[in-house]
Nucleic acid binder design. Structure first.
Lengths: 135, 135
DNA sequence: ATTGTTGCAAACGATTTGCAGGAGG
DNA sequence: CCTCCTGCAAATCGTTTGCAACAAT
């Protein structure tokens, strides 16, 4: 992989981002520094970063792909009103894999836990509604 | 809501189905009995059934909407190769809601657990590959 | 010079909506 | 006869891919 201005920018943007940026989020942020950058370029670099293990690709119930800069195994909570994502302070259940592969015949690869709710802001009626999405 | 031939058919089809049919699945099955039925009709009735609590709408990591006829709270396992879905023999964690709403400020509404793996058939190289989909 | 990378635009996959005509009550 | 429901087609939404021009080595 070559070193390019785009690559550097995307890496910088995604690593700087505190939260769980979606492809569109990263794209918008990148455009502020490089207005003519293409969505596909951002997409391909994020995929590559995910394959390389630098970020973790996350798909939740709202069907949006997000790239998590927190590599460690953990779960997420999503606000049904505004789309905000937070990490869950819940210990990762490593034992689940063995427990399951016994009972179902599956070879277990991974598992995801998603909690859905209303974030503090939305719960108190201050809904901002960046992006809704429910199931 | 009126009683129509389409409505009856869709209810019958979805309730008959043993598994976790997607919109497309129900559509295809319905078409066998009523070839000119529209996808939108199936979609709208399934949404309505979900709202009425007759079926449960489920979105997993492959982004496909499925309608689960098993109303009880439970989790799912998905085969990364062929897209097969099964219920998980894992007790539903009711305590999770209280535990979480304490630590994060969210009002917790619901939670989903998805295990991803390879089903017996695909694990043993007999992959049928109905529909792939990974994250 | 070679070859991987970029930007644009178009393809995709699945869901969701608009609307004129049709059927239920 | 009045509405709600239906089928068709088109819109949407986000992701993914094809490709000719471009830039890194």
């Amino acid at each position: 992989m070559r070193k390019t201005r785009q690559r550097d920018l995307i890496l910088r943007v995604v690593c700087t981002h505190p939260g769980h940026p979606s492809l569109q989020d990263v794209y918008q942020m990148a455009r502020q520094q490089m207005p003519r950058i293409g969505l596909a370029t951002v997409y391909r670099h994020l995929e590559q970063l995910a394959r390389a293990g630098v970020v973790r690709k996350v798909v939740l119930g709202d069907r949006v792909t997000r790239y998590d800069t927190n590599i460690g195994k953990h779960y997420h909570i999503r606000c049904v009103e505004c789309g905000r994502i937070d990490d869950l302070p819940l210990s990762f259940m490593d034992t689940i894999h063995e427990r399951i592969s016994q009972s179902v015949g599956y070879q277990v690869l991974e598992h995801f836990l998603e909690v859905v709710g209303r974030c503090p802001a939305c719960y108190h009626g201050v809904t901002v509604d960046n992006k809704a999405g429910r199931q």
